[in-house]
Write a protein that binds this DNA or RNA. Structure first.
Length: 299
DNA sequence: TAGTTGCCTTCGAG
DNA sequence: ACTCGAAGGCAAC
């Protein structure tokens, strides 16, 4: 068993961090969160300033949950108006974790035109079918499949995971990864713009998926992914920063054109600054949270 | 070249 | 039974 003491309990909240929808494989049982990250199974729980974990090293926990970063400083840098302040206040302690780029990329390709429970089912199916089996506390866990494995399986086998039209993109990217055409360590070294440009060349990767991968796994905290929830949040609370005509036009569209995407995402990066991605994550979670509240009390 | 439209898998909610 | 929408993207036009 390992322990880690935080300076201040508001500097990290495990439930918000793992429950906000940035990751898809964590499961909570009682007070413990069970996870499988980079081929390691472990569990972790929080009690105030204390983090308690089993089957994993302290260094891994520090790195994965970015405990080396000063969250208060990041949050004050994006705290630009009353609305974001409310979101920051409500979910203070939410951090963006360091995901593995390969798993992150495939996960967010699964996320195209899907809701979060659907993405989780896809990834669970992929892992059970093609990932390495592990045992922890007598229960079976499955690692996320390797690029080599996914490059070998047939399209119909992939589609059995409920991937639909995404299956062909996933296999293409698996092939390019084992061929070395995609090298995630190189992406980390590049600027945000250059890395994004390279990601956009992959079939199945548009602006939204690229920004998610850049933010959640490639150390680019300025990335500002715009999905339907963030679009709604921005048009609702920040419409004064856009042309009336633009707002009216984009409000009821299902999908954004590349240009419209860049207008909203570019606003986010300029307005919130170098940690715009954190603002995006708080706005996203806050918007979904408020929507759930409305539904729960509507009857 | 930039912007638009139709289509794509699946699946649960209503 | 039927439609709608979901952490969208592609290709034709």
């Amino acid at each position: 068993m390992g322990k880690l003491l935080l300076n201040d309990f508001t500097s990290f909240n495990l439930d918000y961090t793992l429950g906000c929808g940035q990751t898809f494989r964590w499961k909570k049982a009682g007070n413990w969160w069970y996870g499988l990250v980079n081929d390691k199974v472990f569990k972790i729980r929080q009690n105030g300033r204390e983090l308690i974990f089993e089957n994993i090293s302290k260094d891994f926990i520090k790195n994965y949950f970015t405990l080396d970063k000063n969250l208060q400083q990041i949050l004050s840098s994006i705290s630009r108006d009353e609305h974001i302040k409310q979101a920051l206040q409500r979910f203070r302690g939410l951090r963006i974790v360091r995901q593995h780029p390969w798993e992150c990329l495939i996960s967010y390709i699964c996320a195209t035109n899907k809701n979060i429970p659907g993405i989780k089912r896809n990834i669970e199916a992929l892992s059970q079918k093609f990932g390495e089996e592990m045992t922890f506390e007598g229960k079976k866990f499955y690692a996320f499949p390797t690029p080599a494995k996914l490059a070998k399986v047939s399209l119909s086998e992939l589609k059995e995971c409920g991937l639909g039209f995404r299956a062909k993109y996933i296999r293409e990217i698996a092939e390019k990864t084992i061929q070395g055409i995609i090298n995630f360590e190189d992406f980390k070294e590049m600027s945000y713009k250059k890395a994004k440009k390279k990601l956009l060349r992959l079939r199945g990767v548009g602006h939204k998926v690229a920004d998610c991968v850049l933010l959640f796994s490639l150390e680019k905290p300025e990335a500002f992914p715009v999905d339907v929830w963030v679009k709604r949040a921005i048009l609702k609370h920040y419409s004064m920063h856009f042309d009336k005509e633009f707002v009216r036009k984009v409000l009821h569209k299902k999908s954004l054109s590349p240009n419209e995407y860049n207008v909203i995402s570019g606003f986010g990066r300029e307005y919130f600054g170098e940690y715009a991605g954190y603002a995006q994550e708080y706005l996203f979670h806050y918007e979904r949270f408020n929507s759930t509240l409305k539904h729960s009390f509507s009857f």
